[in-house]
Design a protein around this nucleic acid. Structure first.
Lengths: 153, 153
DNA sequence: CTTATTGCAAAGCGTTTGCAAGCAC
DNA sequence: GTGCTTGCAAACGCTTTGCAATAAG
């Protein structure tokens, strides 16, 4: 059984703000709530539109200025991006995981393999490298988008 | 001993162009040569400046229109990016590898671990996912930038 | 000659910033 | 009140695109 020692995420964030002399404003509370309830992966536009649909309009500037606070406080992090725009994922309280990204439908399958983690640590030791974070993304086709056996793009 | 079955990269690229009804122009030859001789990792600006220094000025438009051809033909590929601009690496004739990226000095250490590759395939099979490519980057501090034993960020 | 390619300058798009007004503490 | 925040609009940096001139096959 796993006990998640939950100083609740909201507390954690407010704490971060306090320690840095920053205010817990309405905007920040709104975004925090949204992130908590969101599916996990999002970009700035999705966030803004979703809030707007719920009657809470925030300017792009505010979004762009606020997200870094959530990143620095460890609530969310930026995911790998190949092009276009920044994407974030909710990490606070979530286990670490890596991604399978479907190139056709965009689905993201999260997975976590202890063996992979262990091997990565081994590689780091071998190169006398001190890891801070790692990102592994495998891109390809999910079972729904590649139903025929043996097909290759 | 490893025999690299080298249809030479230039041949490979010209072949790609021919098959697609595209021309092997002076600009494209210039870039191809540069990529062949470059250190492996670069961005558009580095490419452009370097060529300019060697007396071969190309417009940004040309660079931006040409690099995708090299990507599609399998000569180079885009690397992971966390922010800012696109970076590429030379892959044709190189073994597949992953990256250790030093957050302080920017050094990139390439490595390849067969065990990691195998485990990734296992994960894909488990999720009935057909991989096309993967990117693994471990970010942290290299031995030169983190000389003290046992330190952690 | 015909079609692809290049450079230029303008447009696009995500993101950042200066500034004055507004809110948190 | 004082200082951090916000929105607005302008600025930015990277990348893309329309167009007329040019080179490749």
């Amino acid at each position: 059984m796993k006990i998640t020692l939950t100083m609740d995420q909201s507390e954690h964030f407010r704490d971060y703000l306090r320690r840095n002399g920053l205010a817990f404003t309405t905007s920040r509370r709104t975004i925090l709530t949204w992130i908590t309830e969101a599916t996990g992966h999002f970009d700035t536009e999705e966030l803004r539109e979703s809030l707007a649909r719920h009657g809470r309009k925030l300017s792009p500037a505010t979004i762009y200025r606020t997200l870094p606070l959530f990143v620095r406080s460890g609530i969310i992090k930026e995911t790998i991006r190949t092009g276009d725009k920044a994407r974030y994922e909710h990490v606070y309280g979530h286990e670490h995981h890596d991604h399978l990204e479907c190139l056709r439908c965009g689905r993201i399958i999260e997975f976590m393999d202890p063996g992979l983690e262990r091997l990565q640590e081994k590689v780091c030791r071998k190169h006398r490298f001190t890891p801070v974070e790692h990102r592994l993304a495998i891109r390809g086709y999910c079972s729904r988008c590649m139903p025929r056996k043996g097909r290759r793009g």
